[in-house]
Design a protein around this nucleic acid. Structure first.
Lengths: 114, 114
DNA sequence: ACATGACTTGCGAAACTCTTCATCTCAAGT
DNA sequence: ACTTGAGATGAAGAGTTTCGCAAGTCATGT
C-alpha cells in the first residue's frame, strides 16, 4: 500500500495541529457552516481561513459545496468528533496531574491528605 | 488560565504529528520500553530518538526513569491509547471512502452495484 | 454590462521543525 | 582512575508552515 501506516497517522495528527483548524472542526462537528459564518466565530483573515479550509479539504476531513452565493463546509468523517473528544480528555488528564503535582509540592509533608 | 483551550489542543495534536513520535507512543502503549529497545524497533539515529523522546517528555505524555544503566520510558496518560485508536479509525474511514470513490469512477454507469 | 459580496489562490517574508553532528553526563565494569 | 555503553543536549543547515497582501473567480442584484 505504499505509505507506512504510522506515517499516515502522523500526517492526520499534523493536520489537526493548528488552532484555527481545531476550531473549524469543532464548529463543523456541531453543524455545517458557511465560510462567512466561520469567519464571524474565528477571528482570522479571510484568506487565512480559506487556506486552513484548503488543508482540511485536501486531507478529506471536510467537504464543501456551494449553495448560491455561499460555500458551505461539512465534516466528511464523523469519527473526527471522537478524536476531538479524546484530545479533550487527555488535556483534562494532563491538567489534573499538573494540579495534583502542585498540591503535593505545596503541602509536601502531608501524607496523601484528606 | 491563560492559554485558550483550542490552542492547547492544537499543541497536543502537533506533538503527535511526527512518525517517530507516533511509533514511540504505540510501542509504549503496549508496554514500557528502555531507550535501546525503542532504538531496535524504530530505525532512526539515537540522538534523533532522544530528541523525539524529549518532545514527548516535555508535553508530559511520557515519563522516564533510570533503571541502572538503562532509561525506561512509560506512557504517562493512559488515554493516549484512545487517541491513537481514534486516529486509526479515521484513517480506516478515509481509506474506505477513497476506495468507494474509485469503485464508483470505475463502474460509472452502474447503479450502486452489487 | 457592472458592481458587490463571498471566497480562493499565488506569492514572499518570518517563524518554526527536523535531522545530524559534536559534545557531555551518568552508571557499571576493570 | 579509566573505559565503555546508554542517553541527553546544543547548535546549525535544510526544509516546511504560517500569515497577510494583492489579484482572481463566481454568483447575485441592479
Amino acid at each position: 500500500m505504499g505509505v507506512p501506516l504510522y506515517q499516515a497517522k502522523a500526517e492526520l495528527f499534523k493536520t489537526l495541529g493548528h488552532p484555527a483548524r481545531i476550531r473549524i472542526l469543532e464548529l463543523l462537528s456541531e453543524r455545517d457552516h458557511a465560510v462567512h459564518e466561520l469567519l464571524e466565530k474565528i477571528s482570522i483573515e479571510p484568506s487565512n481561513l480559506s487556506q486552513q479550509l484548503g488543508v482540511l479539504r485536501r486531507t478529506q476531513l471536510v467537504t464543501s459545496n456551494r449553495s448560491g452565493g455561499a460555500v458551505v463546509y461539512s465534516i466528511a468523517v464523523p469519527e473526527v468528533r471522537d478524536l476531538l473528544l479524546a484530545g479533550r480528555q487527555i488535556l483534562g488528564q494532563l491538567a489534573a496531574q499538573q494540579s495534583q503535582l502542585s498540591a503535593e509540592l505545596a503541602g509536601a509533608q502531608e501524607s496523601t491528605a484528606d
